[in-house]
Amino acid sequence: MSFSPARAACVAGALAFLSAVPALAQSGTQIPDLPESSWKPDKPVEFVVQASAGGGSDIFARTMAEIMGKHGLVDVPVNVVNKSGGSGAVAYAYMSTKKGDPHVIATATSSYLTTPIQGHSPVSYKDFINLAVLCVEDYVGVVNAESPYQTLTDLVEAARENPNGIRIGGSSVGSSDNIIENRLEKAAGIQLNYIVFQGGGDANAALLGGNVDLAGPNPSEAAQLVEAGRLRAIAMFSAERLENWPDVPTAREQGFDVTLEQHRGVILPADLTDDQVLFWQNVMVKLFQTDEFKKYLEDNGLRPLLKVGEESEQYIAEQHEYYKEILTELGIAKKE
């Protein structure tokens, strides 16, 4: 299950001009046909979450753990354990000590890739089996409802006239909203003023209070504030318009090629047998097809995207190259 660096480089080359993200967005519902595994867990499984309880990754893990039990996909207890800290560094450092142990799995999202790129983690995606990708989250550009900017074009025009005059509130350096800011600056040839708040909630508060002009949360984070007429969605940073947000044009439609999605997936420790990996692949594929998981995706505004095995490894490697390029441009990637 290892992934050669040579191949990663090849993939990266192929993707340099093809924006990695939209090309993959369409192929989410292919259900692979896997043989049954002869191995199964014989003691309780530890499901490590790299974030604290109540957050997006935690809800993801707890939903999956419940489905695994309810549908008998795993007939031993699955215990969710939060190991937050260091934007994933703590959890994945812990996972790397579990080599060869098939009774521990972990959630992974963009921090799984961006934290090592920034040099904050001793381990990277190459130290694990990238078992599966299950869904992706989009990003939406929102402004205060009283803002003069009706469209992304309005905002870009204003930024052209007043470089650094438009403030964008984000959650941390190297995070998705920082990446959106960078891509938008590049696509439109403008300079924005990125201000770091702690977490999306604080950025939303700053937007409501008029302290920043733009924010880039997940659609689910902004849905109610938009619906209540407090915020206005001016652009979707996805390849195509979202089903639930048919009236919000994409950035691309407005002439700015800015797309970003964040995956949610599951990883395994390295050095497992093929049979053990096959077992977990089966669990992921079956879990993906349950009604409960579909409801979870819908409730949280997530798009289904199933990748297992080689497909998952490839997707992760592509995402890694994509993030690496941007973080290098932002000047926060660790030099090799």
């Binding site: 604290s52 309880a53 109540g54 957050g55 997006g56 935690d58 809800i59 707890r62 977490g199 909630g201 604080d202 939303n204 508060a205 409501l208 689910s220 849905a223 109610q224 504030l225 619906e227 209540a228 407090r230 409730d299 949280n300």
Partner: peptide, 27 residues
């Protein structure tokens, strides 16, 4: 507003989401 004002309310916000509710001004 669906905006957490402390570490504890941030967990409670997550809880609301877990129960299938959208925290926000319409709650």
């Amino acid at each position: 507003l669906g905006i957490p004002g402390s570490g504890t309310t941030a967990v409670m916000l997550g809880a609301l989401t877990l129960y299938g509710m959208q925290p926000g001004p319409l709650l």
